[in-house]
């Protein structure tokens, strides 16, 4: 396994050439260097740093655009999957509109993605499906840390546990949620594990420090 074989702590990982455009480096990066790169002999074609999505246009996007106008910043499609990027305050009205006027009546999933180097730190992703249209779309929004997005429970009951899980893992609190508590982790848990600055080693190190009196068990 890539991350167990490296030497711990003593020396900083050697700088790797040609790796500048890689992922945003969170603080835990020292504990998790990129896996060994193949020799730079065969230079791989450089992939774009952003998703190569193309604009998406259909009757539905026209309807949504008419209704919400400036609140929607992007309609795009990537590998045949459509998504729209919405301003944080417009998410719930958009979900409601899609449910009532466009038959997107099944909220498949709610999740988040953490980009610590970005000003709007989190991507909040709502995956929707319509039984009538047999179509799946994603509604995405970008929110800064500390922002309290409105809960979708009033529109889709299934959002209840899904939003609790997002809170549990990312620390995003939803406004108007009936029961905003941790769901999978114990109440007294510290930190939000799926944030990028939460290292997989930190609990282990804390435990060995407290119980064995050594710096690291790895």
């Amino acid at each position: 396994m890539a991350d167990e074989q490296k030497p711990v702590g003593s020396e900083p990982p050697p700088p790797k050439p040609g790796e500048t455009a890689a992922k945003p480096e969170p603080p835990q990066a020292a504990a998790k260097p990129a896996p060994p790169k193949p020799a730079a002999a065969h230079a791989a074609p450089k992939a774009p740093a952003v998703m190569a999505a193309t604009p998406w246009e259909s009757d539905l996007t026209g309807q949504v655009k008419d209704r919400f106008g400036e609140d929607i910043s992007e309609f795009a499609t990537y590998l045949g999957q459509n998504f729209l990027v919405v301003k944080p305050d417009a998410v719930i009205p958009v979900l409601e509109f899609l449910k009532l006027e466009a038959d997107f009546d099944y909220l498949v999933d709610v999740t988040a993605v953490d980009y610590p180097s970005r000003a709007e730190r989190f991507d909040l992703v709502y995956i929707l499906y319509s039984f009538v249209r047999n179509e799946r779309i994603r509604v995405k929004t970008r929110i800064p840390e500390g922002f309290r997005p409105a809960s979708a429970v009033k529109v889709h009951l299934t959002a209840n546990w899904l939003e609790r899980e997002v809170f549990d893992m990312f620390g995003i609190e939803f406004d108007g949620h009936p029961d905003m508590r941790r769901i999978l982790l114990p109440e007294e848990w510290e930190g939000y594990p799926l944030r990028k600055d939460y290292s997989i080693l930190q609990q282990d190190e804390k435990w060995v420090k407290e119980n064995l009196g050594i710096e690291s068990g790895q």
């Binding site: 791989a44 774009p48 998703m51 190569a52 999505a53 590998l79 993605v113 995956i127 799946r136 994603r138």
Partner: peptide
Amino acid sequence: KVIKPPVGEVY
């Protein structure tokens, strides 16, 4: 041999 998908997301 080394799987490095282009930047993007899928469900």
